[in-house]
Design a protein around this nucleic acid. Structure first.
Lengths: 234, 234
DNA sequence: TATAATAAACGTAAATTATACATTAATCTT
DNA sequence: AAGATTAATGTATAATTTACGTTTATTATA
């Protein structure tokens, strides 16, 4: 047992700890961001990320998962810490440190009613309005992060349906990198990574011919990782 | 002006926010970690990272710089946020969220007297003792971070003296990657990056012939970055 | 002052990976 | 049956990475 009876420095500086979620989706060839219009003061009516104070008995990560579930109905979503926003003057109300966490969700999975109820809306990332506090900075930081990370970790698949086609995957990477890719080289590259399972089904929504559907083979990926494998899509 | 008079949700959940510094150095071919033996309760006598509570009127980053200066006398040190350690039960005393920040310092620059005064010691990273709380995890996370980051950002130079030789740089990378590198290929690679300035001096401490000293050309590096340049040492 | 010892510096050939680029295939609509 | 449309594929060239051995500069010492 730890002894707290003596010499314990108890500082006076307790502060609010919050978490803000930068929620991305992918639809119609574009990256989207889920934000909402505040319905309470202060900053009523302003666009904001979705966040919450962290409760005393709750992990920071749990807090973010809680918020995400409240707004989208989704659990077990890919979410990762972005960084801490800890400037003393970042919130004009009171001292509050916020931990930004970005989430990647499959845009067809979320609970549309719930999202609407909370006043949340998807915005194309090229058209994000002014957000409260340092939230625009958070969005820029999160974008920079996924642009780098998508290159060497298979996080892109979190934004696609379970079953996706190679052209869909290519369009996603084109949206992330903001750059056109050569379809022959792209296909060669992703297939050479050996983590895609080709299914016997086709998606015919975008062409008469239809494109074969694939699944990401996470088990295989984890195995390969152990033997010094490097995922990379550039 | 923001209106805080109405509808403002003021939570009860204020908590302590701390920062812990994972301080790395490089000496005699090995990566070193600066830790100290606690001189106050709780956990008196246990090895710990160097940290502090964040003050109400202080940025989180400032707090880390303050701590680092207190212990090493150094200012303007390379330091970067690692991640937040925010589990509700991570500190048995009271709810405390800690933001880990890793620092890279030139091991000959620090104030040895000051370090000694604080009970701090350098440990080879292969021989880090048990640390308090989740500090060992922080060290592992920081190591993983610099191993990845050194590959694509020139952070390694922060651990070397201003003037260094190519063999020294190679030994550093070998220590970071835990792997021997081919000296001919290494030299070719780093010189091809065009960010080293060859000086007219030699370092003769490790060989009769002496090795030419180089400096990292940060100005050049920043310029190159703007035109889509990729630093990479693998 | 010649020789030995030692780490630094350098180049090339082979293998791998990335890039550029055009045609054929499958299927639906009319 | 023809036309329209996206999916799928291959190859040659360029660029990069890897593997590997010899010469050079210098000091110590014989």
């Amino acid at each position: 047992m730890v002894d707290f009876t003596e010499d314990l420095y108890v500082p006076k500086e307790r502060m609010y700890v919050a978490t803000d979620c930068i929620i991305f989706g992918f639809d119609s060839g574009n990256l989207k961001l889920l934000i909402f219009k505040r319905r309470v003061k202060p900053l009523l009516g302003e666009w904001s990320l979705i966040g919450s104070f962290v409760k005393l008995n709750e992990d920071v990560e749990e807090a973010a998962q809680r918020v995400l579930k409240e707004i989208t109905g989704l659990e077990n979503v890919f979410m990762e810490e972005l960084k801490t926003y800890g400037n003393a003057d970042r919130d004009p109300g009171f001292r509050c440190v916020s931990i930004g966490q970005y989430a990647l969700i499959r845009i067809n999975d979320y609970d549309k009613e719930l999202v609407e109820k909370h006043g949340a809306h998807w915005h194309d990332i090229s058209e994000v309005p002014d957000l409260v506090l340092d939230h625009n900075q958070m969005v820029q930081d999160a974008l920079a992060r996924i642009r780098r990370k998508a290159r060497y970790k298979p996080i892109g698949f979190e934004l696609l349906p379970e079953k996706f086609t190679i052209p869909q995957l290519q369009r996603l990477y084109e949206a992330i990198y903001q750059k056109e890719l050569d379809s022959r080289n792209f296909r060669k590259k992703v297939l050479s990574l050996n983590v895609l399972i080709k299914l016997d089904e086709k998606d015919k929504t975008t062409s008469r011919r239809g494109a074969f559907l694939y699944k990401f083979d996470n088990k295989r990926y984890q195995e390969l990782l152990k033997s010094g494998y490097n995922f990379e899509i550039s």
